[in-house]
Simulated scan of single mutants.
Amino acid sequence: MRRVRLGQNGPDVSAICLGSMTWGTQNSEAEGHAQIDRALACGIDFIDTAEMYPVNPVRAETVGRTEEIIGSWIAQSGRRRDVVLATKLTGVGSSAVRAGAPISPAAIRAGVEASLRRLRTDHIELYQFHWPNRGSYAFRQHWSFDPSGQNRERNLADMRACLAEVSKMQAEGKIGHFGLSNESAWGMAQWLMLAEAGVGTRAIAIQNEYSLLCRAYDTDLAELGVNEAVTLLAYSPLAAGLLTGKYAPDAPPPPGSRATLHPHLSGRITPRVWGAIDAYHAIARDAGLDPVQMAIAWVMQRPFPVLPIIGATSVAQLDLALGAADLVLPAEVLAAIGKAHKAHPMPF
Rank of each mutant, 00 (worst) to 15 (best):
I103N: 14
S104V: 00
S104Q: 11
S104H: 09
P105R: 05
A106N: 02
A106I: 00
A107Y: 01
A107S: 15
I108L: 13
R109S: 06
R109M: 07
A110M: 10
G111P: 11
G111N: 11
G111E: 10
V112F: 09
V112A: 02
E113I: 13
A114S: 14
S115P: 09
S115N: 10
R117P: 05
R117L: 09
R117S: 14
R118S: 08
R118L: 08
R118W: 05
L119F: 04
L119R: 04
L119E: 12
L119T: 12
R120P: 06
R120N: 13
T121V: 05
D122C: 08
D122R: 13
I124M: 13
I124F: 14
E125R: 03
L126K: 02
Y127F: 15
Q128V: 11
Q128N: 01
F129N: 10
F129Y: 01
F129D: 01
H130E: 04
H130P: 11
W131V: 00
W131H: 06
P132G: 06
N133V: 07
N133H: 03
N133R: 06
N133K: 04
N133C: 04
R134E: 15
R134M: 09
R134C: 06
G135R: 01
G135L: 01
S136L: 03
S136I: 04
A138M: 08
A138P: 12
F139G: 10
F139H: 13
F139P: 08
R140N: 14
R140W: 03
Q141A: 13
Q141Y: 00
Q141V: 02
H142V: 03
H142P: 00
H142C: 00
H142Q: 06
W143S: 04
S144C: 02
S144T: 12
S144P: 01
F145D: 14
P147G: 04
P147Y: 07
S148A: 13
Q150E: 15
Q150C: 03
Q150T: 07
N151P: 07
N151C: 13
R152K: 10
E153R: 01
A157H: 13
A157T: 10
D158T: 14
M159A: 05
M159D: 03
A161S: 12
C162S: 12
C162H: 01
C162I: 07
L163Q: 15
A164H: 02
A164F: 06
E165P: 13
E165G: 10
V166R: 02
V166L: 15
K168G: 04
M169I: 11
M169T: 02
M169E: 08
Q170G: 10
